[in-house]
Simulated scan of single mutants.
Amino acid sequence: MIKSEFLKHRRRAAVERIARAHLTSMDGTMADAVGQCNRQRLVWLGLLAMPLLFPVALPGMASVVGAFCLLIAFGLCNGEPVRLPGWLANREINGRATMLLKGMINRAINIIALVGRPRMLSLSNKPARVLNGLVLSAAGLSMMVPVPIISFDNVLPALAIVLISWGLRLRDGLMLLVGYLVTLAAVASVILLWWGGTLAATELLSMAGLTSSR
């Protein structure tokens, strides 16, 4: 029991140290904050995706996180970090996102430290980097694709990004597996929402007499 509590406290301290080290550099542009190392960028990606887990309005945040996610995914597949494009590198981090992150960081650290630990290491080893990059890119694309009618459609992609980012950073294969499943659910939800939105739009146009029926 004492050993279990000690390990839990140790994991929490490690996750807290990683998260707070990144939050201290959050004021400024993306280029100033995220650095050039894939491990450092993964933590940033996980942190920036956290506010999108909640149905709050953060204009442009989903596009930024999605684009950043795709760059990191490409870097994972390529084995080297990708240089940020100018439009993303010079963008200042959303002030509201900063406030939300600082407010939720303690709860997030408690949850991640409770469940995250090194296990199933084969899923976070170098041979699996292409798989992780592809899954991460799917999560990023599902976040960037605009969905008709539905307002809060970023929760599943954001959860997938958080799980995969922290899973890779902490080498937690179980967290990665859950992230894979959530990514599949996010992609499926985007497809279903587009299909449903298209059917609804077609029906509305038909009711308004703007489409011809055969």
Rank of each mutant, 00 (worst) to 15 (best):
M1D: 09
L7F: 14
L7H: 14
R12L: 12
A14G: 07
L23K: 10
L23M: 13
L23V: 09
S25M: 10
S25H: 14
D27V: 06
A31P: 06
L47N: 11
M50H: 08
F54S: 09
G60L: 08
M61P: 02
S63H: 11
V64I: 05
G66P: 00
A67Q: 14
A73C: 06
L76K: 01
L76T: 02
N78L: 14
L84D: 12
A89G: 08
N90Q: 12
R91L: 08
L100F: 15
I105D: 08
A113N: 03
G116H: 00
P118E: 12
L121Y: 04
N125H: 10
P127R: 05
P127G: 03
N132L: 00
G133K: 00
L134P: 05
L136M: 11
L141A: 11
S142E: 03
M144E: 00
V145L: 14
P146E: 07
I150V: 15
S151C: 03
L156S: 02
P157C: 01
L163D: 11
L163E: 14
S165G: 11
W166Q: 02
L168E: 12
R171P: 02
L174R: 13
L177H: 02
G179I: 01
T183S: 08
V187M: 05
I191S: 09
W195E: 15
G197C: 10
T198G: 14
T202K: 13
L204R: 13
A208G: 09
G209H: 04
G209V: 07
R214K: 13
